[in-house]
């Protein structure tokens, strides 16, 4: 008796509906996950711009220090070196975040 009633009951039970809806939604989300970063060109642009950005900003800050704080000639070389370090840091972080999003989507 209870066995026969069960499917009918669960079909009208709002909690159960919620649960089934959520599992379907989860499946849907997993299937339509946003595209991952892949492809050689995109990787190159990503890493390249991360690294170049660090160097450019470092050199720019060094130049400004030379110009306005009178650190000539030490500001620019120090800035470029710091910029290289920052660029490497950027690339490492980009690689970390990319491998993390890879793990999450597998």
């Amino acid at each position: 008796m209870s066995c026969r009633n069960e499917p009918k009951l669960s079909a009208s039970d709002p909690d159960d509906f919620e649960r089934r809806l959520n599992t379907r939604l989860e499946e849907h989300r997993a299937r339509h996950a946003p595209p991952r970063d892949s492809g050689a060109w995109k990787l190159a642009v990503r890493y390249g711009s991360e690294f170049a950005g660090g160097v450019i900003v470092g050199a720019g800050l060094g130049y400004l220090a030379d110009r306005f704080l009178g650190w000539t000639p030490w500001g620019l070389p120090a800035g470029v070196l710091m910029g290289f370090a920052a660029g490497v840091l950027n690339v490492v972080r980009a690689a970390q975040s990319m491998s993390r999003s890879d793990d999450a989507s597998h």
Binding site: E50, A52, G53, G54, I56, V57, A86, G87, N90
Partner: peptide, 10 residues
């Protein structure tokens, strides 16, 4: 700081 400032550039 340089790394942070380079973000808008990249």
């Amino acid at each position: 700081i340089i790394s942070f400032l380079s973000r808008p550039v990249t």
